[in-house]
Design a protein around this nucleic acid. Structure first.
Lengths: 341, 341
DNA sequence: TTGTATGCGTTATCAT
DNA sequence: ATGATAACGCATACAA
């Protein structure tokens, strides 16, 4: 009458073999005769035995586990990409462990250590920007690390991502090219978030392209939450003259802005155009549908999984790849109404 | 020049103490003199040492880790509740590991074993319905398990949840009481999902209350995805006479239905009323805003965390608690237009 | 094909 | 206050 969970020893005893044989049945089934294998397998599910993961990792130095650390799980920004990442890992025989940081660098450092301590064979992190101490730690543990959601040709860190600045520049240029002269931005918090910073730069690029002064860009920085987008939008609408184009750092903020516009009786895009970034599911659900930058999330997740596993297997030292985004022009963007001025 | 990650031994050597002392510094700092503790701490971050989690669990029999297994992470159904669950666990000194099953019982059984193997001190599962073998396994491993998102006074399994059937009955009765005679349902897959089954029963209850025949209820069962809600809605609209009320198993399906209604030029609620269940963020974003059942997700998450930790600590053998839902009446529900008939 | 023995990194018991 | 040392559960090199 065992209170505790059954171990290899228990299985071995019942099956009348050594623990080594039981271990082989689980890991190298063909190195064991059919008859004994059957005995062992029977003992295993008779006992309801499950191998102890920690012990296994300690003894074998391999966990077949990959860790991913993302800024947030609260909205869908990372959901689709991560889903594809995990599905691909699964087909490769790996398990994904994910944790989030609430956009706090200190929490990220903590989570990294936690995943390493849990024996992760490799890590997926979002973006480039973090302290050198973190990269040093990763190097000392010699744990393969891949970045995603950003791409910089100049960095030596391996990354599967896209050019946030160029992507936003494309949208910005397109939108401003429609004739908007008064532009505002609702950005995510830039500090510690290279993607947010680059997107903001992309907006400025578009202004410059069309001969506008980027210094005139009204900017509100706020965490990625729908309600924050709404509040920022309301604030921006107090300006005079009112902007006719409000570009948001991502779809979450943009959806908040659209919601508030309706609440205030401001027509989109007749009175003001609103744009987003990411093309999450919400972008099509909101009314009017949101013009945004489409990011190939699933492709990114898949490719990241393959690359990271190659790194873990020692078949790659870390290759980078830049993915292309596309403009998704929907109802929320239009030319400004011709003004009396 | 160590290639591998530093261990307790390395720290002990550098600090000039025994491994036991280092271990104490980490776990029982006050049983160590201030001077040696400083030496040790310095050695620790000089090396960038992180305790090996697996070894720690194996030696101490405690992981301070809780596992949660939910049907899906793809939509926001479980996001808010789980977020609160994890936040509360964190304040109690526990870490949350979560995995998903895609609503497949076999995957759930697998995930349970995986989390147990990883040393989880306790488990949170969704709903009651699963094979006895699973409950037996849990009992044999004597691992505290708490259920959530459902509540049944007759079960001996501890659970923090709400009455899915009664909640849907309240909504159903309210809606049908407005005068609807032709009702359809878009339900989640009922097999293996007690919440979906109970909600469907709740709809039937409402019909009966108002003297309608539940056998007349047109039902489409489909996985919880927005697109599926849209497809089901379109299918339902082919019926003659058309239903004037379409009740959905959750908000995700309902949002899909609303989207498709607009695409088809069907006015909501003038031509047809649509209702959901859960009150996720989407419910307020969609146009028209969705009438639904509000579930106190955050309260559920918080209370589940506290109860489960008490069970883990041996201070509780598992208490159940029923939470109250509320009706959230919004734009998508209205009385049927008076018909010629 | 199967068994023996050792080590993995930590905690905890027992001495000192 | 600190140090030996025996578990913990498993994989694997080496023998048989």
């Amino acid at each position: 009458m065992n209170q505790a969970a059954p171990t290899l020893d228990d299985v071995a005893r019942i099956a009348g073999v050594s623990t080594a044989t039981v271990s082989r049945c689980l890991n190298l089934p063909d190195k064991v005769s059919g008859s004994t294998r059957r005995k062992v397998m029977q003992a295993i599910d008779e006992l309801g035995y499950t191998p102890n993961f920690g012990a296994r990792v300690m003894a074998s130095k391999r966990s077949f586990t990959i860790g991913a650390i993302i800024p947030t799980m609260e909205n869908a920004i990372f959901a689709r990409g991560l889903q594809a990442f995990q599905e691909t890992l699964h087909t490769l025989g790996y398990t994904l462990l994910v944790s989030s940081t609430a956009y706090r660098p200190d929490v990220e450092a903590e989570q990294i250590k936690s995943l390493v301590a849990r024996g992760a064979d490799g890590l997926l992190l979002i973006g480039y920007e973090r302290e050198n101490a973190v990269y040093d730690y990763l190097a000392r543990q010699s744990i393969p690390t891949l970045l995603a959601w950003a791409f910089s040709p100049t960095s030596k860190q391996a990354s599967i991502g896209f050019d946030n600045r160029a992507s936003m520049r494309a949208l910005s240029s397109k939108a401003i090219g429609m004739g908007h002269r008064h532009v505002a931005a609702i950005s995510g918090i830039v500090a510690g978030n290279d993607r947010a910073a680059e997107r903001l730069q992309g907006i400025r690029d578009g202004l410059v392209t069309h001969g506008l002064d980027p210094a005139d860009l009204q900017i509100i920085e706020t965490p990625y939450e729908i309600e924050n987008g709404a509040l920022a939008f309301e604030e921006i609408m107090k300006a005079s003259p009112r902007p006719t184009l409000v570009m948001c750092g991502n779809d979450v903020l943009a959806v908040g802005a659209i919601q508030r516009a309706r609440a205030l009786g401001i027509r989109v895009p007749a009175d003001v155009s609103i744009t987003g970034f990411d093309d999450i599911e919400l972008a099509r659900i909101v009314t009017p549908q949101l013009t945004t930058v489409h990011v190939p999330h699933r492709e990114m997740g898949r490719k990241a999984a393959h690359e990271l596993i190659e790194m873990v297997a020692g078949q790659s030292t870390g290759h980078s790849e830049q993915l292309q985004t596309t403009l998704e022009l929907r109802e929320s963007l239009g030319p400004p109404l011709s003004e009396a001025s």
